[in-house]
Computed example of a mutant assay.
Amino acid sequence: MKASILREAKKLDIVDVTLRELKGNEVLVKVDCVGICGTDVSVYRGDYGAKGNVVLGHEYNGTVVDAGEEVSKVNVNDYVVSQASWGCNKCHWCNNGLPSYCEAPNMLGRTIDGSLAEYIIVPENVLFKINKDVSSIEAQSVVGIATALRALHRSGLKLGDNVLLIGPGYSGLIMLQLCKLAGARDVGMVGTRDSRLKAAQDLGADFTVNIKQDSDWEKNLLQRTGNLGFDVCIEASGTVSGVLSSIRMVKKGGTVVQFGTSFNKIDGLPQKDFYSKEISLVGTKGGFGFYPKAVNLLEQKKLEIESLITHKYPLSEIAKAFEVMDQRLDNVLRAVVFCNED
């Protein structure tokens, strides 16, 4: 089969790889569509550690073409989606039902080979069947949806809450839709790109602000809340400035969710606000426990995904796909790769 190998930072090769034999609990999936997310780009740049000559990609869908003798939950020709990572089943966290905290997780596209190939081998317990009327572009989004659902759960969002989202990227726009579905009363999005803010408006944002064009945006939005602040602020840009703005914008007793991925240190964290406002700053990682709900939302056509995919490539153009995502060319929001072009 053909697979895309990361030789070194920003150097991808397409090579022929011989598939190994399946173990008893493993499934061979013919990969259809793979989404390229920020984590993939970080590995591509060399910012995240990964095993040598790794096959990138962890958000995908496909069709089962073979299964080991112990497999019982999926069958050949099933249309499936997959978790992006899973636990070792040996450490303290896995043994206590908390694989999200696993000390040695199996991570597609990082610690083990991922999905940017014509085929992928995974354990059956990380696969979920999905209706065939869900398009491949929609199905590849299941990881992003599950991750957003977990973050939303950790936010404690209640019916009628008002929400401020910072960062109208692909994940932020999925989160926007989930907040609306969850019954949030007033959901706004702030960012720096008009094209993405327009997408937020089209997806139902009650208000949007380009913070590059409004130096008083925090003051103006606080006035919108009667100077009380927002019940929930979700930082989806992965920036320190986004976290600090969220802390200033959240109401007393409210919750700030660090949804965007970042490994930066936060200088100037206003500790007094945690005391005087009794706010909560919540972290979140991955979509463990929320994949079935993500599948259900896609099958019920509750989310708009197709319009979030701005660029599409065949596997043969994988280098171009990563270049566009890495350098944010051509107003890219999300690129996907089709791994079997027949």
Rank of each mutant, 00 (worst) to 15 (best):
A319E: 14
V282P: 02
F288L: 03
K320R: 14
E304Q: 13
P270E: 10
Y275G: 00
I266Y: 08
K302W: 02
D267A: 15
G283V: 12
A294D: 05
A319C: 07
S307L: 05
L315I: 15
A319T: 15
E306H: 10
E299N: 07
V282Y: 01
G286N: 14
G286Q: 06
G268K: 13
E317I: 00
L281M: 13
G286E: 02
P314D: 10
F322T: 01
K285N: 14
K277L: 14
L308K: 01
L303G: 01
L298M: 08
Q271C: 08
A321D: 08
L303P: 08
Q300E: 15
E306I: 08
Y291A: 03
H311E: 07
K293D: 07
Q300K: 14
K285A: 13
Y275C: 06
E317G: 08
K293M: 10
A319M: 09
E306D: 13
E317M: 13
I318A: 15
G287V: 04
K272C: 07
Y313V: 01
L269P: 09
K293C: 00
A321P: 04
K285Y: 13
K293Y: 07
F274Y: 12
Y291S: 00
E304V: 08
T284G: 09
T284H: 05
P292I: 09
N296G: 05
S316R: 11
P292V: 06
L269I: 14
H311S: 03
Q300I: 00
P292T: 05
K302F: 02
I309P: 10
K277N: 12
